[in-house]
Amino acid sequence: MRINWKPFVLSLAVLLILFPFVYLVFLSLASEWRFPDVLPSYIGFKNWVTVFGSETGLLQSFFSSLLISLSVAIFSTTSGFLISKAVFYHPKKRTLTLLAYFPYILAPVVFAACLSFFFLKMGLFGNMTGVVVAQFIIAFPYALLFFSSFWNEKVKSYEDLVATLGGNKWQTYTKVLLPLAKGLLLICFFQTFLISWFEYGLTSIIGIGKVQTLTIKVFLFIKETNYYYGALSCCLLIFPPVVLLYFNKRYVFKKLV
């Protein structure tokens, strides 16, 4: 009899994918787990209670990160959509598109070092606005390049058609362009949110330790070798992207396929 290995291989693959996440949750519930103990001496919600009691400022970092990432995602998606249209109709479209790749030529830390002088002059160093602006500089070109595939001759024809049917610019956007681009807008929002959410190099330099996003906090805990808080902050770090991924899968990808 021939054994069908497929279910076993699939199960193993699922286990391997899920293991780091399960282990992360387990680690966040543990404390005082020392070699050669097989299990930690404490398993419970002590770490979580401490965190939610804001003793370590982790919850504050979570909300700061959420605010920063939502701002970056909203601004970059909106401006990326609008400006990519202007770029598409511009006679120097190719040059402008090429320029959009510029922030990705340099490593984020080097890029931040280049920008730091200007941020210092504008009073954007070490505050949340500065971090939002810095991350926007990274996320906006992404959105611009992302939407460049949306604009084409057919969309131009739709715009012209609405105009001849008596529609103004606002009506063209609200009644045709935005409904047409709805799926792409949601995906771009998701992607730019993730770019901002996991950003470290630029945030650490522009934020100079005063703006502590969750990603910065995770690195701090890891540096301090506080694995339990590190695991806990990783859980918090993963939670919003998982929620977004769920909504994307349920409401966006299904419609696009």
Binding site: S157, Y158, D160, T164, L165, N168, P179, L180
Partner: peptide, 20 residues
Amino acid sequence: TKPEKRNIVYLYQEDLLFPH
């Protein structure tokens, strides 16, 4: 005059129905 004020409708070879 702007196209939206002319009351002249332009029909393409493609039907260009709004897919939504």
